Simulated assay, not measured.
Amino acid sequence: MAWSTRQLAELAGTTVKAVRYYHGVGLLEMPERGANGYKHYEVAHLIRLLQIRRLSDLGVPLSDVAAMGHAQEEPEEAIRVLDAELGATIERLRRVRAELALILRHRAPAYVPSAYAPVSRDLSERQRSLLMVYSNVLGETSGEGLHELLGSAGDTGAEFEALPADADDAEVERMALRLLPVMREVRETRAWATGSGRGARRAEQAMGEVVEQLHNPAQLRVLERAVELVTAEGGEAPRGGRGRRGG
């Protein structure tokens, strides 16, 4: 007995489109055609189609099915590789689910690193953005350092966030002095140390651009002045922040 394409697909629990696709990529041999021009599929085609479906259901890429789809072969190494890949995928999905649980529990923005989900709602949008970029560009440790400093800044941090763009020189000076203890802590803990080399310098330059674009002119003047003050005390200027620039 011979089957049509549709009958074969129904027997194998797949679609005509899938059967045609398997023909196109060379996984399923083309059957002979009858006098009427229709394809006539045999038992061998059904078995091969079931093999393809089974391997596909196991997660085997179609590009690998050709090498491991015959019953007489024992592709143990390919199966071990697939098992390792699936194990890594499962671990990643478990980690993602744990992160999603934190986000949902604290109703935090999904883009904020999950470790900071418990406090993210107390931060401004700018602080969240800084935390996200620092954690990814400079590493998780740097993000933790920034998070601690944002928390220790308290009312000073909130006041800095609210500083208007047209604040006068006296207000900028007062705010810089308020931020000076935070800058000292940056200096002492080296919270944003990034190592050395071209990659570290590029990261620091990138963070300088982030700081510049996320703050208004008055806030940038405050940061510049605070860096000047902490440097005048004999300390190294905080890295990844904004130093004195011309213009």
Rank of each mutant, 00 (worst) to 15 (best):
S129T: 06
N136G: 07
G157E: 08
H147K: 12
R128L: 00
V133M: 05
E161F: 04
A158T: 15
A162G: 03
L149A: 09
E144Q: 03
L123Y: 07
L123A: 07
E148H: 03
V133S: 01
L163N: 04
E161G: 05
D155H: 02
A158W: 07
G154P: 04
L150V: 02
N136W: 00
L130A: 04
D155E: 07
Y134A: 04
T156D: 11
G139T: 09
L149S: 13
S142Q: 15
Q127F: 05
N136F: 00
L130E: 09
L138S: 10
F160S: 04
R128S: 00
F160A: 07
T156G: 12
L138G: 10
S129R: 11
S142V: 15
Q127D: 08
R126I: 14
L149K: 14
E125K: 15
L130C: 01
G145N: 14
G157N: 06
L138R: 14
H147L: 09
M132Q: 09
E140T: 10
E125S: 15
R126Q: 10
E161R: 13
L138D: 05
L150T: 08
G157T: 09
Q127A: 11
E140P: 02
M132D: 12
R126M: 07
Q127R: 15
A165D: 13
V137E: 10
N136V: 04
E161W: 14
G157H: 05
E144N: 02
S135F: 02
M132K: 07
L150S: 05
L131N: 03
G145Y: 07
Y134G: 06
L130I: 01
T141S: 09
H147Y: 11
Y134W: 13
R126H: 10
Y134M: 03
S152F: 09
G143F: 00
F160Y: 09
V133E: 03
G139V: 13
E148C: 05
S135L: 06
V137Y: 01
E144R: 15
L149E: 14
L150D: 02
F160P: 08
R128D: 00
L146Q: 12
G145F: 10
S152Q: 06
S142I: 07
A153I: 07
V137S: 03
E144P: 00
T156A: 06
G139Q: 07
R128Y: 00
L131I: 06
T141F: 01
T156R: 08
A165C: 12
P164S: 07
L123V: 06
A162Q: 02
G143R: 01
S124K: 13
A165R: 15
S152Y: 12
L138W: 11
L150M: 15
G143S: 02
S124F: 01
V133L: 05
G157V: 05
G143D: 05
T141A: 12
Q127K: 01
Y134D: 02
G154N: 08
E125N: 08
F160V: 14
R126W: 02
L150R: 01
A162V: 02
E140Q: 12
S142D: 11
S124D: 06
G154E: 03
A158I: 11
L163A: 13
H147T: 13
E125D: 14
A158N: 12
G143T: 05
G157C: 01
F160E: 08
D155G: 01
A158L: 12
